[in-house]
Design a protein around this nucleic acid. Structure first.
Lengths: 127, 127
DNA sequence: TTAAGTGCAAAATCTTTGCAAATGT
DNA sequence: ACATTTGCAAAGATTTTGCACTTAA
């Protein structure tokens, strides 16, 4: 499957770059309102994940958030065994840098890691 | 808010007990088909979480899974800083027993921990 | 008796899909 | 040219809500 450069794709990409936090579908829809269709945003984000351009975080609010892999400061190894933090107040989702490893029971095979801690970020905590 | 004992509540509770893994809404709906209404199941599960009878895991499939807190073998301290494992094949979600602690950046306050690793469980891996 | 809990159906969300038109390469 | 991508609208799926009725305490 060969990929093409389109305005929509560029728009989503630069929205993610500008944000430099993980964005949910609805936040992106908001940001790109009018210029890119809902369905298209869903499709673009899925392709980004397939292609390793972005990764998908499922937060404890049940929503999916997307972050460019380069935002994660460890793209070299391209492992996503790190936590994300979601602020319950400002709703920003950011990557934490601590890598974590979990021992699985014998015979278990890990394919995907999804860790989210929610609470109050610094900015919101000091209000 | 005073809580009452009702047949529906008991049904949900014993379904969770029997399963001794975490169950999603749809699996519960399935199990209790006909006897308990959808909306009621949603409401009961929410109440269970509020009351500390069950805890809610949001898995990387975006679905919520519910497990009785006693299933987690560390109810004494009632911390839920442990991971869950979701098998991509049989779709069972189980509690892992390893406690984990993550260092948050200064000024960050954790309120909720949600960690899920998905992959293949032992039974499914050896097929 | 009366507040909590339930069922049902409708509304509100959220996400995916089909298809014809548009557009990168 | 031609396969990929898009927009739109419709279908699906998931979760919540309003309200009248029921029921545990």
């Amino acid at each position: 499957m060969k990929r093409r450069n389109t305005p929509s794709k560029t728009a989503v990409l630069s929205a993610l770059e500008r944000a430099n936090t993980a964005l949910s579908h609805d936040k992106l829809l908001d940001t790109l309102a009018g210029s890119v269709d809902r369905a298209t945003i869903y499709r673009i984000l899925n392709r980004f994940c397939e292609d390793g351009i972005a990764h998908r975080i499922v937060a404890d609010d049940g929503k999916q958030y997307f972050a460019l892999c380069e935002d994660c400061s460890h793209q070299e190894e391209h492992s996503h065994n790190h936590f994300h933090f979601r602020c319950l107040q400002c709703d920003r989702v950011e990557c934490l840098t601590t890598e974590v490893s979990v021992n699985l029971p014998k015979g278990y095979l890990a394919e995907n890691f999804n860790g989210v801690i929610s609470g109050k970020c610094r900015a919101c905590g000091s209000l």
